[in-house]
Design a protein around this nucleic acid. Structure first.
Length: 948
RNA sequence: GCCCCCGUGGCCCAAUCGGCAGAGGCAGAUCCCUUAAAAGGAUUGCGGUACGGGUUCGAAUCCCGUCGGGGGCACCA
């Protein structure tokens, strides 16, 4: 091994661009950049300002906030980071003021779980991981403004996360004005009587506790006793978004139970309409917009009241036009009304299928509810057989006075709409299934299309069996019936959303503490800004108490509740020193990432979360550039599609609240979003299903072998357990970071997932090696550049590349940009490889164009070409039109769609001239013969097609 | 079940408005250099665009259907 290496080194010219040379160049330039603050982006004002005016032309590029995992990076992680870096570098070279940096979303469960196991403080673990992470990304040559690095666990950062929480807490949504307002303005309305209190008493007569309770109904952050997803196995409650469709925790896969707990909620539902409608103003992938719309789930319909004795059931329906076909009604098992409508006895002649054999309706309902409550969400999911039981009560269909039986059934969910439905089996398949099972009548109220042989008909058609609606289409019928319902006081048109308020408390240690305290009444009191941050206390035990995963009745006990010296605190909040209790929950992981783009802008401001002028410069709307509807926000935000709903919805919500309260100038955080694809990898399992090291598997005739035995190939993620991890460190070691960057960007378009192939990396290395050799003598290290005037052909090749590469960089097509550079370099090799050297014009052009993709080698060559200044701020070449125009065009001539000949015509030739030239061509004349072509199509600069 | 995206040489991928299927890389083949090997250099494209229809003078591109892959939602009334 050692002798081989020595031999190899003898054979390699001293100045060849090898991994070792690349490594030393890279380290040198990384140090240079850092020492010179090359990537510092000046702010208009404040400590990060240079005191000079900033250029109006700015660009804010952002990567999705990484979590500093202990496992370190694999080659998939930097795909987006390099992508943003190339974009940022390209625009920086073109003279724009570019803000690009990276911080850390550093609160989170892994560090806490590690702490639970080892007792090591999560901060220690996290900070170590951040060090590792920074070392890894530094090696990639990312042009970050390192002064702007932030971390959510820094007190200087989470102080402002807490401050924003208080802004949300101290505001309410004025539905009439369509925006959030300070809570004081609501108090003023109550106090002066312009807004009545819920029970009509004057505001001043309410006790302090009562007043707080009323305000709690309006605050955008509020405590709620509502049912939550309690996960005993994790010892915490979870947001709806963290629970899988089969009712288990997304992390850990433990059962989740619904139970009532007092938790912080964020009233994101107040913003449902704006969150949907403003999507239109964003330059985001349609897919992500669709996912957000779907998640918010706005549907238009009506609420209709069905009388049941003295009570009435309010149902929600999106198909009020089918009201005449409602043949029964259903309440969710948890619905309050059930107990009140159940009669003492079954009606005479009750259908035996409806009673479950119970002696009385009360018994039947109780048994059904019991059964439903023990059914896990998974059971409900898997078993779509309709079940239910008759309540013994009848409701009256308001539109025709029909008596319809009321059932309890778990296919109706308490959490959506009113928890009650009118069932229209003729137009709804679920209702059809239920009706069929229980022998309920079906009345069609929309005429099915001809030949329809299905069951429920959900399509368009004229109304039938619907009295005054008959003959109307669905939309007309909806409008008409809603009018009728409103006129007669039976209901009203309404809009329903799937989106629920955001559960904002976690029973965790490693998160932001809540900046509130509770008095003896248990009412939350916001701490004044001067008391922020509320710092996390030290504790002995980091674990929340976890329970038997199946124990639904267990009580949450967060780690902070054991820090008794911290939880009980004496404070003077204006009425003398009193003892208060702190909130022992912490904020969810999403909190810190909801607003980090704002802090990147002004990371050192300790007066405000972000300085106004700096915010307006980097994130404010720019209507002249982006149109009248421009919401402002980060100019390019790149990250994986996995954050399509949660992070991106929460961020938008916070941004809108801050906007409404006048703290920021734009109402959206991210103007343009781009989802990068994933780097995936093959993994191999042997006959026992055990993963074997992927780098030792060999391929033969389409089969795969490890140590001589055939193994099975799988395709998917890269991961330690799959034994297929490739790290950027290894790539930098073996090939150099510039090669790695170039290869990673060459693999395909940014938004497409692709398999990693280490063996292909050598292509990128060869390219950089050839480029180096074209400019530097491998044996002497002398510059191989001449002051010769390049040939016309070379200038054309150069400027064609400049024009194409510019477009490619601008539209994130780095793979084709790379290909054009290789093409140009191939031209240089061919033309000047055997000469004294490459003409300087060409050499400088190719180096400049390479810089965004492979910045270190470009800086090195640029400096060797005699330039004292870094290439980071340009120049980037512009195409010269003179070399883009062509003198002649070769037209292929098709006859009947097949290429039969070619003619060369002057570039400016008119269509008639091209046509004449084509018809005059010998081969064509022969084919056409004496016939007159039916049609001759001339596509300028493309081709000629003759139709005989 | 519903919705969205994607199928191009052995592999990763190009092809701007519907206009000659091929820019680039890997692998392969041949040759040059070399005592030899590696590295380097030169030359080299074998698929007609998953499949079946349709529109068009002309389809990888547009439309319909099928198959395959990936993703999202899922008893949301």
């Amino acid at each position: 091994m050692s002798t081989d290496t020595a031999h190899d080194q003898d054979a390699v010219p001293a100045h060849r661009y090898t991994a070792a040379l690349a490594g030393s160049i890279e380290q040198r330039w990384q140090q240079h950049w850092e020492e010179h603050g090359t990537y510092h982006a000046p702010n208009p004002v404040g400590p990060l300002s240079t005191g000079k005016p900033v250029p109006d032309d700015k660009l804010f590029v952002q990567d999705m906030f990484p979590y500093p995992s202990g496992a370190g990076l694999h080659v998939g992680h930097p795909l987006g980071f390099i992508g943003t870096d190339v974009f940022a570098r390209y625009h920086r070279m073109n003279g724009r003021n570019v803000l690009h940096t990276m911080g850390f979303d550093a609160f989170g469960l892994p560090a806490e779980q590690y702490a639970v196991q080892t007792g090591q403080h999560p901060r220690t673990t996290t900070e170590t991981n951040i060090e590792t992470y920074l070392r890894q990304i530094r090696r990639l040559g990312l042009g970050h403004d390192e002064r702007r690095r932030i971390s959510t666990i820094d007190e200087g950062y989470y102080k402002w996360t807490q401050w924003i929480f208080l802004q949300v807490f101290n505001s309410w949504y004025d539905a009439d004005a369509g925006r959030a307002r300070p809570i004081d303005e609501l108090i003023a309305q109550f106090a002066d009587g312009s807004r009545p209190t819920p029970d009509g008493r004057p505001w001043a007569e309410l006790s302090g506790t009562e007043q707080q309770a009323v305000l709690g109904e309006h605050r955008l952050a509020y405590l709620s006793e509502a049912p939550v997803n309690w996960c005993p196995g994790l010892g915490t409650v979870l947001a709806n978004e963290e629970v899988t469709a089969d009712g288990r925790s997304e992390r850990g896969n433990f059962p989740v139970f619904r139970r009532s707990l007092r938790q912080w909620m964020m009233r994101i539902t107040a913003y449902s309409d704006r969150l949907i409608d403003d999507l239109e103003r964003l330059d985001w992938p349609e897919k992500v917009k669709a996912m957000q719309r779907n998640w918010i789930g706005r549907s238009h319909g009506a609420r209709v009241r069905f009388a049941v004795g003295d009570e009435s059931i309010e149902v929600f329906t999106t198909r009020p036009d089918t009201l005449f076909g409602a043949t029964y009604a259903v309440l969710a098992p948890e619905h309050d009304l059930v107990d009140r409508i159940v009669p003492d006895e079954w009606p005479a002649d009750v259908d035996p299928r409806w009673t479950e054999g119970a002696a009385t309706p009360a018994e039947a309902v109780a048994a059904y509810r019991r059964a439903a409550s023990t059914k896990s969400e998974l059971d409900r999911q898997e078993n779509r057989d309709k079940t239910g039981v008759f309540t013994g009560a009848y409701a009256v269909n308001p539109v025709n006075g029909a008596r319809v039986p009321v059932f309890v059934a778990d296919y109706v969910l308490m959490g959506y709409g009113t928890g009650a439905i009118m069932a229209v089996p003729g137009q709804d398949q679920r209702d059809w299934d239920f009706a069929t099972k229980f022998g309920l009548p079906v009345v069609r109220t929309v005429r099915p299309s001809d030949g329809f042989e299905g069951e429920a008909f959900t399509g368009e058609g004229p109304a039938i069996n619907s009295a005054f609606l008959d003959g109307m289409g669905v939309d007309d019928a909806k409008k008409t019936i809603i009018g009728w319902l409103e006129e007669h006081g039976h209901g009203r048109g309404t809009v329903q959303y799937k989106l629920r308020d955001w559960l904002f408390s976690r029973q965790r240690y490693w998160g932001e503490p809540f900046p509130v305290v509770y008095d003896s009444d248990g009412a939350p009191i916001a701490l004044p800004d001067s008391m922020l941050p509320v710092v996390l206390p030290e504790v002995d035990d980091y674990s929340p108490r976890t329970f038997d995963p199946e124990d639904a009745n267990s009580e949450p006990s967060p780690p902070l509740s054991r820090a008794t010296e911290w939880t009980e605190v004496e404070l003077d909040l204006g009425d003398g020193p009193k003892t208060y209790r702190r909130d022992t929950n912490t904020m969810p992981n999403w909190a810190g990432s909801c607003w980090y783009q704002l802090r990147y802008v002004d990371p050192t401001d300790d007066e405000r979360f972000v300085g106004r002028e700096n915010e307006r410069y980097w994130l404010g709307p720019r209507t002249t550039e982006h149109g009248a509807a421009d919401p402002g926000g980060v100019d390019l935000y790149i990250g994986g599609v996995e954050h399509a709903v949660l992070h991106l919805l929460y961020s938008r919500f916070w941004q809108k609240v801050l906007f409404d309260l006048g703290h920021v100038s734009g109402d959206e955080p991210y103007r343009r979003l781009f989802n990068q694809g994933y780097v995936q990898a093959y993994a191999y399992t042997d006959s026992r299903g055990t993963y074997v090291p992927a780098d030792q598997v060999v391929e033969e005739d389409g089969k795969f072998f490890f140590e001589g035995r055939e193994v099975n190939r799988e395709y998917g993620k890269m991961g330690k357990s799959l034994k297929n991890v490739v790290t950027p460190d290894e790539m930098a070691e073996t090939y150099g970071a510039d090669t790695f960057r170039f290869y990673e960007m060459s693999m395909g378009p940014m938004d497409v997932s692709r398999p990693w192939a280490t063996k292909d990396v050598v292509g990128a290395q060869r390219f950089l090696q050839r480029l180096w050799r074209n400019l530097v003598d491998e044996n002497t290290g002398e510059l191989r550049v001449t002051d010769e005037e390049p040939s016309e052909e070379s200038l054309r090749a150069l400027h064609r590349a400049v024009a194409g590469v510019r477009e490619d960089y601008e539209s994130l097509r780095y793979n084709t940009a790379g290909a054009k550079l290789i093409e140009l370099n191939n031209h240089i090799t061919k033309t000047y490889g055997g000469t004294a050297g490459t003409p300087r014009t060409i050499a400088e052009g190719v180096v400049q164009m390479l810089a965004p993709l492979s910045p270190h080698i470009a800086e090195e060559l640029w400096s060797r070409l005699g330039h004292g200044e870094s290439l980071a701020h340009g120049p980037f070449p512009r195409p010269d039109e003179r070399y883009l125009v062509v003198d002649t065009v070769e037209y292929p001539i098709q006859v009947g769609g097949k290429v039969r000949s070619r003619v060369v015509v002057a570039a400016g030739a008119s269509q008639d001239e091209v046509r004449a030239a084509a018809l005059a061509d010998e081969k064509i004349a022969e084919l056409v013969g004496t016939a007159t072509p039916r049609k001759v199509i001339v596509v300028p600069n493309r081709l000629v097609n003759i139709v005989l």
